[in-house]
């Protein structure tokens, strides 16, 4: 593996993995804290018909229409879930399950009907993610990193991911206190006049945006892994809000980088012939991270710190 190969093939994919997993990890904490983890599952599936519709209307695999379509679909799904909960008097899990599977099925059928599948949007991309297809063939060497022309030719998924990551990180920083209240004491938040419903909606849309940006890189089901696993692992280890949110993002990004490295480049570097689906490895690592955190927590409980007892 040469440096040029790394620049052309691995660097963009690695960046995409880090950005996608970091963004999902950042927002995942709010889902886990609000006991709303299934919403991640629901939204990552429910955005599919919106993506296909956005694609069908513009006929191109452009970022913005797909993002807007996905947000609209996510909004619809959230409304539908609360409607189903109220009218059919289902518990929220069942209502969520009924709605997101219907949306996903609709998306799959739309994919067939609009011919999107044969053209550009691959079923494999939805199910498995296509981290490996994020390549930067224009790179001529490390000098290209400073060359505007070459940088402009970076894969467009990277631009979408970076933009979404930036916007979402900014929003989280901006809404840091209100989100904190919303997670831990929604009643108090409502009592002091925070627009709790609006915040919830904003959070849902943020999750949908993260899901759709990460969608292409890791696939819809692995978005769920990245939303929930890092946040749950950190949740097992800390009670601090700051550590939870920032730790979730950091662990997500780290898992993304490690998973990508373990899937292909690392075995290749050691002369091994096999390579695995990177998104799959990242998701598996997510599960292992939770299991590891579980063990760590049990060890900690078994040996309580003396300071914790006296204090």
């Amino acid at each position: 593996m040469t440096a040029l190969d790394f620049l052309r093939l691995d660097l963009p994919a690695l960046l995409a993995a880090i950005l996608a997993c970091g963004t999902c990890g950042l927002l995942g904490s709010f889902l886990v804290l609000r006991r709303d983890s299934l919403l991640g599952d629901a939204l990552s599936h429910a955005v599919l018909p919106g993506i296909i519709a956005g694609f069908a209307m513009t006929g191109a695999r452009a970022g913005l229409p797909m993002l807007l379509g996905a947000l609209a679909a996510a909004l619809l799904a959230v409304v539908a879930i609360s409607l189903v909960r109220r009218v059919a008097r289902l518990e929220s899990g069942a209502a969520t399950g009924a709605v997101f599977t219907s949306f996903f099925a609709l998306g799959l059928m739309l994919m067939e009907a609009t011919g999107a599948r044969s053209v550009d949007l691959d079923l494999d991309c939805v199910l498995f993610g296509q981290l490996e297809s994020v390549v930067w063939l224009e790179a001529q060497g490390f000098g290209s990193l400073l060359d505007p022309a070459a940088l402009a030719a970076l894969p467009r998924q990277l631009f979408l991911l970076a933009a979404v990551a930036l916007v979402l990180a900014g929003l989280v920083a901006l809404l840091w206190r209100p989100l904190h209240l919303l997670c831990f004491d929604p009643d108090y938040a409502a009592a002091i006049g925070l627009p709790a419903r609006g915040l919830e909606l904003a959070l849902n849309l943020m999750v949908a945006a993260a899901a759709v940006a990460a969608f292409e890189a890791v696939g819809s089901i692995l978005v769920v892994a990245m939303l929930v696993c890092p946040a749950a692992a950190i949740r097992l280890l800390t009670d601090s809000y700051r550590a939870q949110v920032l730790g979730g993002a950091a662990l997500g990004a780290a898992l993304g980088a490690l998973g990508y490295a373990l899937a292909g480049p690392l075995p290749a570097a050691f002369g091994q012939a096999f390579s695995l689906n990177a998104a799959g490895v990242i998701g598996t690592l997510g599960g292992l991270a939770v299991a590891g955190a579980m063990l760590l927590r049990q060890l900690r409980i078994a040996q309580p710190k003396p300071a914790a007892i006296s204090g």
Binding site: L127, L227, N277, G283, G287
Partner: peptide, 14 residues
């Protein structure tokens, strides 16, 4: 449920 379904599925994909 979300953790199990996504990480098992991920292992399957890999």
């Amino acid at each position: 449920i979300a953790i199990v379904l996504s990480s098992f599925y991920a292992l399957g994909v890999a």
